[in-house]
């Protein structure tokens, strides 16, 4: 399955939930914010949220800033 993740094309496993995807990229998923196709998906929905082919995902978290 192909998705656009943080602006880049990526191939991922079809069976992935949002939760498992985030866990792949972050040690602390609780502070990651996920946006799927322009909509923010809250943490409680992640375990059951199935990623679709062609989805655009943004995963953001907090970094230092002025």
């Amino acid at each position: 399955m192909n998705i656009i993740l943080n602006g880049k094309l990526r191939e991922i496993n079809s069976a992935m939930t949002l939760r498992s995807l985030v866990e792949q990229f972050s040690k602390n998923p609780n502070h990651v914010i996920a946006e799927v196709n322009g909509n923010i998906i809250t943490h409680d929905q992640w375990p059951s949220w199935r990623i679709q082919d062609g989805d655009t995902l943004e995963l953001v978290n907090f970094v230092g800033g002025g």
Partner: peptide, 29 residues
């Protein structure tokens, strides 16, 4: 103040929040 950025997919960096003592008010820019 803190900022929001796309997570670094290669480096799995720790979130900055972990390094800010509890009780400090976060101002997200």
């Amino acid at each position: 103040t803190v900022a929001l950025r796309r997570i670094d997919l290669e480096r799995h960096e720790e979130n900055i929040i972990e390094h800010i003592p509890k009780g400090v008010t976060l101002l997200v820019n």
